[in-house]
């Protein structure tokens, strides 16, 4: 009511004051938009864009010529292998995380009240503990004499300890664990947004529970799955601590390679070129993915 009358009043004022007022109002809107976005724009420009530019110019600063660092990485079979490994690792981790998150998110979406609060805390709590601490915990748990191996041995399930650490098994366990909440939350949100009468409607129209799941529930929650997958995939691509601590030399990722360039070999242009190769690959992948999935709709809420 109040809003309506205010709107009318504004309309009346506009029509009497004419187009000059409209123009100045538009100018005012631009100023407001600028003021709201300003702080974050300044922050990004100084703390993100500028260093990125610095890094870009660094990548062209090799003594052998501007593109030499890029060429060196592209030409080396070993480096190419590291890039492939990283992409496959990130893809698999994202896939496993989504597969594990889907049923969990479903269960969460059925909970209400106190049980829901407890369950959500359980999901979010690990995010408060440093990744470093959590990764150390896995080293203790998964070691040759760690509790996992001891339990398996005492139950006569295995005769020799399984080596979980310093190979891809350890990397997968650690990374899926750390990144699982990022898959779970978007899927949970998508499930909460599914209109319950749609499921009743499907039931009433003669669909079996499986048909209702496959034709209604899964397609409607798929944007959440895509968002979770994308989030985990992108985070996993740049992951450093967990693969560095739980993996072996065979499981080297791009982040570890860049670290090697900087700390061991002291070739900064190569490190910068490595970072930009990864960025380029990710942008390419997103471009291809955007042909099949509506990425904007995936990340932004409906």
């Amino acid at each position: 009511m109040v809003e309506g009358s205010l709107g009318n009043w504004r309309l009346a004022r506009q029509s009497t004051a004419g187009s000059a007022t409209i123009r100045s109002q538009r100018l005012g809107q631009i100023c407001v938009t600028g003021a709201l976005l300003g702080p974050v724009l300044i922050f990004l420009a100084t703390c993100f864009i500028a260093p990125l530019g610095e890094l870009l110019s660094l990548s062209f600063s090799s003594s052998a010529g501007p593109l030499a660092s890029y060429r060196e990485i592209a030409a080396s079979g070993v480096y190419r292998q590291v890039f492939t490994n990283t992409l496959i690792l990130a893809f698999n981790v994202a896939l496993i995380a989504c597969l594990l998150a889907y049923p969990t998110a479903y269960m969460l979406s059925r909970l209400r009240g106190f049980a829901l609060s407890v369950a959500l805390w359980c999901v979010l709590f690990p995010l408060w503990i440093s990744v470093l601490v959590r990764t150390f915990a896995w080293i203790l748990l998964l070691g040759e004499n760690g509790p996992v191996n001891r339990i398996l041995m005492s139950g006569d399930l295995i005769s020799r300890p399984i080596s979980f650490l310093f190979n891809s098994t350890g990397v997968y366990i650690g990374m899926v664990h750390v990144l699982l909440p990022y898959a779970l939350l978007p899927i949970y949100t998508a499930m909460r947004n599914v209109d319950q009468p749609l499921l009743l409607a499907s039931d009433g129209l003669g669909a079996s529970p499986f048909q209702t799941f496959a034709r209604i529930y899964l397609p409607l929650t798929m944007p959440g799955v895509a968002a979770g997958f994308l989030l985990v995939f992108l985070l996993a691509l740049g992951f450093y601590i967990t693969p560095a601590m739980l993996g072996g030399m065979k499981n080297m990722t791009v982040a570890m390679l860049i670290d090697l360039f900087v700390t061991e070999q002291l070739v900064w242009p190569l490190a910068a070129a490595g970072a930009f190769w990864l960025l380029l690959l990710v942008l390419l992948l997103l471009l291809v993915a955007s042909r099949f999935v509506n990425l904007t709709a995936t990340v932004a809420a409906r």
């Binding site: 009468p197 039931d203 009433g204 129209l205 079996s208």
Partner: peptide, 10 residues
């Protein structure tokens, strides 16, 4: 519901 042979307008 699915075995009841009903049509429903919600």
């Amino acid at each position: 519901p699915r075995k009841r042979d009903i049509g429903m307008v919600f």
